[in-house]
């Protein structure tokens, strides 16, 4: 059988409109997840990086003495690990689009650019949450065993993590799309990413800290911090979404 024998010109029937957009979104997301499951590149490199960070923490805290309660800074340490591991993951998620010029093929298809943004960002949220879910138990095991008890409500932690992950993925997807086209990808991403992440991290650390420590008025601190996280996520997602079309086409 040859190409000529196959009915080439009879154009295959096509979907259009919102159902097509949804199908495209799912396709990109599924493709990223399938590729990750196959190579395990992102999650392993991020996970190992997180473990290495834990070792560094041990060194950093080695002189703190027995009176020091790691719970006091647990939220900060966790988010620090997430920031560095997420940069690693964000870069990877766009490098494989770029490697074989696949991004060009993607842009040539009748897909609205925002769909690419949301699908890539959603994929990054998924990977970040996986890494967070793996890191937290390890962190608790290594550093929080002596701590008397956990302070706040347990459900607060995943909420704070998800809020932070959405912001990281939203801005990160935009920035990684740019940095993947630069000389010195990782460095450029870090220089752009960290200052933009600053307000989100501050709010996320505050929320996580309230959840870990508990204490007077922690519920109020948690919710007011979460409100700031949500505000940041909303504003930055809209901005990143609006700018993405320009960035991806350049």
């Amino acid at each position: 059988m040859t190409v000529a024998d196959t009915p080439t010109p009879p154009a295959p029937a096509r979907q259009t409109g919102a159902s097509l957009s949804w199908r495209q979104f799912k396709a990109i997301l599924r493709k990223d997840i399938v590729m990750e499951l196959r190579t395990k590149e992102m999650v392993t490199s991020m996970g190992i990086y997180a473990l290495l960070t834990m070792v560094i923490y041990q060194v950093a805290l080695s002189q703190a003495g027995t009176a020091f309660d790691p719970r006091d800074i647990a939220a900060g340490l966790l988010w620090l690990a997430f920031v560095f591991t997420s940069m690693l993951g964000l870069n990877r998620s766009l490098v494989h689009e770029k490697d074989q010029g696949c991004l060009e093929a993607l842009l040539l298809s009748p897909v609205d650019r925002p769909i690419i943004f949301f699908a890539k960002a959603a994929g990054n949220v998924v990977f970040l949450l996986i890494v967070q879910a793996l890191t937290i138990p390890v962190f608790a095991f290594l550093f929080l065993q002596r701590a008397d008890q956990y302070g706040g409500d347990l459900w607060m932690i995943p909420l704070a993590l998800a809020g932070g992950a959405i912001g990281i993925a939203g801005v990160g997807t935009l920035l990684a799309t740019m940095s993947v086209n630069t000389k010195g990808k990782d460095f450029v991403l870090a220089v752009l990413f960290v200052p933009l992440m600053y307000p989100l991290l501050l709010a996320a650390v505050s929320a996580t800290s309230a959840a870990v420590l508990g204490g007077d008025g922690y519920v109020q601190q948690f919710w007011s911090s979460m409100a700031l996280v949500a505000a940041y996520d909303a504003i930055m997602l809209v901005a990143a979404f609006a700018l993405y079309e320009f960035v991806i086409g350049a």
Partner: peptide
């Protein structure tokens, strides 16, 4: 450039682009 994803199979690559073009069947 082949414009194909190295970590997907031939069929997965084509299915992916079929989704992007909204091809039925």
């Amino acid at each position: 450039n082949p414009l194909l994803y190295p970590d997907l199979s031939a069929e997965e690559n084509l299915s992916f682009f079929a989704d992007m073009y909204g091809i039925d069947d």
